[in-house]
Simulated assay, not measured.
Amino acid sequence: MDLHAIKVACSSCNLRELCLPVGLNAQEMARLDHLITTRRRLRRGGMLFAAGDPFTSLYAVRSGFFKTVINTADGRDQVTGFQMAGEILGLDGIVQDKHSCSAVALEDAEVCVLPFDKLEALSREFSTLQHHVHRIMSREIVRDQGVMLLLGSMRAEERLAAFLLNLVQRLHTRGFSRSEMILRMTREEIGSYLGMKLETVSRTFSRFQDEGIIEVRQRYVRILKPEALQAIVNQGEPL
């Protein structure tokens, strides 16, 4: 891991609208720029933080992909989420001042380090920033609720369809294709996240391809019929 104490100007970052608030004036933006003075680079497989580590900062993903995992009572690693550029890592540590999960880079990645005590102090001064921090926390709560719904009420094909649609939509928001993507996570990691066995994940991918809904070549996925994926998801939604 490479730790750089270098200036990272939020005001000129092309991810600013995704991970930081719009509406700050020039003076407020300068104060925020001063807060975020460090970025951290990780190689694929590198750990940004581990469960049990003291909580000191939030991390805005600048590039790359991450997974968050918890270690279960029987010693397995359970994937709890996948994070990409413009998203925030580390919110799990706020409650107990230590991290409850580990964050691992799925490819070479870079994050901006946001010292939480300074961010908290600044957000008390700027209501726009405070509101944005609250929105980020709320978004994580909603996402967790969505995962609970996914795991609790959907069949395997519905889970995978919802996962693919969510992933491609998040990537499209960041300027990528509306229908094509390279999966940064393995089939096994997808299964861990969705509560599915590896064999079930592979079988469901094959079924979607056989039905002409998606095209799959190793980690490359092209969604040919998004409406068909959405119809599969809709079957599992409660009345």
Score class of each variant (00 low, 15 high):
L119K: 02
E125T: 01
A162V: 04
E110F: 04
K225Y: 00
H134I: 13
E180W: 07
Q130G: 15
A121W: 01
L114M: 14
L165K: 10
L229T: 05
V233P: 02
E215V: 04
S202W: 05
P115S: 04
Q235I: 13
L165I: 02
E199N: 12
I141S: 03
H134L: 15
Q96H: 15
N234C: 03
R187Q: 14
L183R: 12
V221H: 06
S202F: 03
H132F: 15
R170M: 13
Q230W: 07
V216G: 01
G93Y: 08
L149R: 06
G152T: 08
I182F: 10
G175P: 12
V201K: 06
E140T: 08
E211P: 02
A161E: 12
P238N: 04
F205S: 02
M196E: 05
S206T: 13
I94D: 01
I214W: 11
Q96P: 00
L167F: 10
Q145F: 03
Q235D: 11
L183H: 07
T204V: 10
G146S: 02
D108T: 03
H134K: 13
I136Y: 08
P226R: 00
G212D: 09
S100H: 08
V142T: 01
S177R: 07
T128I: 15
H99Y: 14
V216H: 10
A121T: 12
S102P: 05
S206F: 09
K225L: 00
L150P: 00
I232H: 02
P226W: 07
S127C: 08
A156F: 07
L150D: 06
L151V: 10
R207K: 14
K197Y: 02
L183D: 03
I213K: 06
R207F: 03
V104K: 00
N234E: 15
L119C: 01
V113A: 01
D108S: 11
L198N: 10
H172W: 09
V221W: 00
Q218T: 08
R143G: 03
D97S: 14
R159F: 13
R139Y: 12
T200I: 05
S192T: 07
L151Q: 12
I141K: 06
S153Y: 09
V221F: 03
N234G: 02
L229R: 03
M196H: 05
R178V: 04
L171T: 13
A228C: 01
F176E: 15
R139H: 14
I232M: 09
V168R: 11
S192E: 11
N234F: 02
V104Y: 04
S202R: 13
H134W: 13
R203F: 08
L183V: 09
A105Y: 02
M154S: 14
E188R: 10
L224K: 03
I223E: 01
L183Y: 06
H132G: 07
E110H: 01
E189N: 07
T173N: 13
E157G: 11
V233Q: 05
M154N: 09
E140V: 11
F163R: 04
D97R: 10
H134N: 14
M137A: 15
D97A: 11
Q96T: 14
I190G: 04
L194Q: 05
L194E: 08
F126G: 00
Q218F: 00
T173Y: 14
F205Q: 05
D97W: 11
H99V: 01
A105L: 07
I136R: 11
R187V: 11
T128H: 12
L129R: 07
